[in-house]
Computed example of a mutant assay.
Amino acid sequence: MARELAVRTCGLTKQFDRHVAVNDVDLQIAAGEVYGLIGPNGAGKTTLIRMLATAEEPTQGEIYIHGDRLLLDQSNTTLKRRLGYLPDDFPLYDNLTVWDYLDYFARLYFLREPRRTQRLYEVLELVQLQYKRKSLIATLSRGMKQRLSLARTVLHEPILLLLDEPVSGLDPVARMQFREIIKVLQEAGMTILISSHVLSDLAELCTSVGIMELGYLVESARLQDLYQRLSHRHILLTTLGDFKQLQAELNNNSLVKAWEVMAEKQLRVDFDGDEEDCAELLRSLIAANIPLTEFHCTQEDLETIFLKLGHQQAS
């Protein structure tokens, strides 16, 4: 049974003077997904997210959130209140404490007591800043400030979370902490769209990805489908035995597409199968009495797929 669509756009386009930033985008994101939006600078990612957040008005096209048409006028304020948007340059107020900052936004979201105080404690626990609630924002590290911004974004329990480059400039530890928070939010049932240049983070977080180039959505697919379709598998093999015997056995497997000699007694094999096929290849080599000292299977990562698709578009 198909899941409900949290986001659906039809012919979404944004033009600034003569520049078309987003061009005829038909985007679909199922409810509960973490959807990664990737592409080079200037591809249109931020403009697309801003239109979904009602911070930018489309030149043409339509946006639907859980089946309801999203408009910039005052006709659907309730729907807009269910959106959470974290831009890449949202300002913080350094002279406020963490608690006062969140309390200020909770009041803007019309959260009333006792729910307001309860919700502040909940989001502080989520982003692991309970012990900093009385601290001035000016004293926080960059990673803490970004987690505080995320806490502000989810205060009102949005059904759709829009994150534009949320880990930009963060160190590896801060990025890991941010990823863990996103996983908790997804487990709670939130739909999340996140753009990032850190593709390793997206590969760990996302269920689906969209790739933008020059305003177009050139690819949109579940991450596993993308891997199966575009990611090649490599196997590193090292043997103590006769190299020619190993090569002869590899020739007998139709999923072996090519190989490259890496070092003495070592081959890198381009393999067109899945993990079960890798296991079957290993069994056949052992059955042929080939003395292997290494059999290491790897798959091309999301960054390689992205570069490969970019090259295809350019050619």
Score class of each variant (00 low, 15 high):
residue 128 Q to E: 09
residue 246 L to C: 09
residue 164 D to I: 08
residue 5 L to A: 09
residue 313 Q to V: 13
residue 200 S to Q: 10
residue 56 E to G: 05
residue 48 L to I: 08
residue 27 L to A: 03
residue 1 M to C: 09
residue 197 H to K: 12
residue 287 A to N: 09
residue 165 E to V: 04
residue 267 L to T: 07
residue 139 T to P: 10
residue 18 R to T: 14
residue 205 L to E: 06
residue 159 I to D: 14
residue 283 R to A: 14
residue 264 E to V: 13
residue 205 L to K: 04
residue 1 M to W: 06
residue 62 E to F: 00
residue 289 N to L: 06
residue 165 E to A: 10
residue 119 R to L: 01
residue 250 L to W: 01
residue 263 A to P: 00
residue 243 F to W: 07
residue 32 G to Y: 02
residue 138 A to Q: 13
residue 229 R to F: 00
residue 80 K to Y: 05
residue 233 R to L: 03
residue 14 K to F: 12
residue 128 Q to A: 07
residue 263 A to V: 05
residue 152 R to H: 07
residue 209 V to Y: 02
residue 73 D to M: 07
residue 275 E to T: 14
residue 220 S to K: 07
residue 148 L to R: 10
residue 174 A to N: 15
residue 45 K to S: 02
residue 248 A to Q: 14
residue 108 L to W: 11
residue 191 T to Y: 03
residue 159 I to Y: 13
residue 44 G to M: 11
residue 70 L to S: 13
residue 246 L to P: 01
residue 120 L to M: 07
residue 80 K to C: 05
residue 120 L to S: 13
residue 51 M to R: 14
residue 252 N to W: 06
residue 135 S to E: 13
residue 11 G to W: 02
residue 139 T to F: 00
residue 35 Y to V: 06
residue 15 Q to N: 11
residue 5 L to F: 00
residue 217 L to T: 00
residue 289 N to M: 04
residue 213 E to Y: 14
residue 123 V to D: 03
residue 203 A to S: 14
residue 132 K to I: 08
residue 41 N to Y: 05
residue 152 R to P: 07
residue 141 S to E: 07
residue 206 C to V: 11
residue 268 R to G: 04
residue 273 G to M: 03
residue 3 R to G: 15
residue 8 R to D: 03
residue 45 K to P: 01
residue 188 A to G: 12
residue 53 A to H: 05
residue 35 Y to W: 05
residue 215 G to R: 06
